[in-house]
Structures are given as C-alpha cells and as structure tokens.
Simulated assay, not measured.
Amino acid sequence: MARLSVPTLESSLTTRISMRWASETPFETTDTLVITVGEWYVDLRVDKQTGKIDWALAGECIQESTDPRRVVFTHEIDSHHNFNVSNPCPFIPLPNGDVLETGTMARPDVPGAPMTDYEEVWRYLPFREGPEGPGRGLSWILESDEGVLEEGQHKITKMFLAKIGGSYLVLCQKQIHVVRRTPLGERTVQITGEEVSTRREEWTDDHWEIKYALGPSNDSLPSMANGLGVDLRGRKSGEKVTVGGCDFILRALASELPRQTRHSRL
C-alpha cells in the first residue's frame, strides 16, 4: 500500500503512571489509555480493583502558552459531569521522558468535591500494530454531529470514536443541552449528562479483542470487534462523515506516526 497523503498532525498514546492529591502519597489505581490526535483527545480510566469506569472524558486540548507550556481541556463528554473548560494545566518534561501535569480540579472522592491541587505523571506508549500493518494506517478522532442547537432544551447522544494503530476507544453519553441567550445576545449552553458507556478494543493476533465494555449501552456502541468499518482515506479534518449509520465530524486525521514533540494532549 502506498503511503497516504494526510496531514502531519501528531498522534500519541499515553497512560498515567501516578496521581497525587496536594502533598499526599502518589498512587495509581487505574488502567488508563489516552488517544490524542492533533488537538483532540479521548481518555478512558478504568479502576483496576472494581473494573468500573473511574473517569471517561473527551474533547479538545487547547494550548494557552509554550513557555511554560499550559493546556486547557474541553469536556464534551465527562463521566464526572464537569462540562466546563478545565483550568490551565502546566506540563513539565521529566528526565526519563515522562511528563508531569499539575493543576487544580474537583476531587470526587471527598464530599463536596472541593477544588484540590494535583499532580499526574504520564508516559508515552508505543503504538500497537493494527490491521493495516506497522505504520501504515491512519490515526483519527470522530465526534458525533448534532448540528447547531437552537434555543431551548435538546436531548442528544454525544459520542467520540478514536483509533491509533491497534488501539480503539469509543465513549458515549446521553446529554441534555439547554441553550439560552443572555440579554446581550450571547449564547450559553447548560449541559447535564447520564452515565457514560464505553469500549476499549485492541488488535491482537489478527483480530480485534474487547478489553473493556462498560456502561449501560456498551453493547450498541460502534465496535471494531463487531465488524465496524471506517475508511477515511481522502478525507480532511472538519469534514462530516457517516460511520456505522451515524453522523460524525472528523475532528482530527493523521498518518500513523509517533509524536516528535508534544503539542497536544501531553
């Protein structure tokens, strides 16, 4: 197969190594996988002990500054129901190649979820070989297309699909969007969400295996293991596409090449 002519956006596959609240002892209780393509990310964290979703979120990562590097994240899907934009998060390279993220966020394990300082250490992962062969596929992220919502209350099903090589994530959340106009004419949106459903699948021994299938609607989610076909050759970021009978916006598309320097999720 000839190399495809696609943008040279960066793609990364990352996992969390440790988490620390304020001055407490670092810990890691999750199996976390984050797929980032360009300026979009899909992030699934599964509790190792219970096998349940610890946190599932997806959206856009926006770089505010480069020195020091600070990023804010939108939460278009969030199992913790924090749909506001995150506080700016500094990212600091560590000598061993890992990345230290610092910031302040709501602490869900404490009553009232107070805003608390935190530190997370992230590590880049090698890409799993996918069905196309090593380095021969595309990395992409799709977001469901609900169109422009007018004033009023709207029930939607928000979904993100993401793939790099032999790693695939899908997150889905039923949401209610209440759209209003302020006296000055500014558009505001209040979002509430239900439980997130998700699948994480991996290409292993020439077939897709289901690593996690969680949430009330996981059986109906678009699944590589169930034969989902996604052909984005010739497409461009921002285009509308139909996958599995659903309408999506192609948020990011890149050749399957590892990152050189980090300009997106990490």
Rank of each mutant, 00 (worst) to 15 (best):
residue 18 S to V: 06
residue 221 L to K: 05
residue 40 W to L: 12
residue 259 R to G: 15
residue 55 W to T: 00
residue 11 S to E: 10
residue 264 S to T: 15
residue 213 A to L: 02
residue 209 E to H: 14
residue 41 Y to F: 12
residue 252 A to I: 10
residue 21 W to Y: 04
residue 132 E to Y: 01
residue 262 R to D: 05
residue 171 L to T: 00
residue 137 G to I: 05
residue 146 E to Q: 06
residue 265 R to N: 14
residue 102 T to G: 04
residue 134 P to S: 04
residue 38 G to T: 06
residue 44 L to F: 00
residue 262 R to G: 07
residue 167 S to Q: 07
residue 200 R to W: 14
residue 55 W to A: 00
residue 241 V to Y: 06
residue 200 R to G: 03
residue 199 R to V: 02
residue 56 A to L: 05
residue 143 E to G: 11
residue 75 H to I: 02
residue 212 Y to S: 01
residue 51 G to Q: 05
residue 163 K to M: 09
residue 158 K to I: 12
residue 9 L to H: 01
residue 82 N to I: 09
residue 17 I to K: 15
residue 182 T to G: 04
residue 252 A to W: 06
residue 160 F to M: 06
residue 214 L to D: 09
residue 232 L to K: 03
residue 126 P to Q: 00
residue 256 E to A: 12
residue 1 M to V: 15
residue 168 Y to F: 08
residue 96 N to S: 07
residue 28 E to F: 10
residue 104 T to C: 11
residue 26 P to G: 09
residue 13 L to S: 10
residue 173 Q to I: 00
residue 248 F to Y: 13
residue 144 S to C: 07
residue 204 T to W: 11
residue 99 V to W: 10
residue 238 G to E: 04
residue 86 S to G: 03
residue 3 R to P: 09
residue 76 E to A: 14
residue 20 R to S: 12
residue 182 T to C: 06
residue 45 R to N: 04
residue 140 W to E: 02
residue 130 G to L: 02
residue 199 R to L: 01
residue 5 S to A: 13
residue 1 M to H: 13
residue 93 P to Q: 01
residue 163 K to A: 06
residue 202 E to F: 04
residue 263 H to I: 13
residue 9 L to W: 01
residue 101 E to S: 12
residue 171 L to M: 01
residue 127 F to Q: 12
residue 118 Y to M: 05
residue 261 T to R: 11
residue 43 D to A: 05
residue 100 L to Y: 04
residue 16 R to Q: 07
residue 182 T to R: 02
residue 140 W to S: 03
residue 95 P to E: 03
residue 21 W to M: 04
residue 61 C to Y: 11
residue 182 T to A: 06
residue 96 N to Y: 09
residue 11 S to H: 06
residue 136 R to Q: 10
residue 27 F to S: 14
residue 247 D to A: 14
residue 134 P to D: 02
residue 40 W to Q: 08
residue 159 M to S: 12
residue 163 K to S: 12
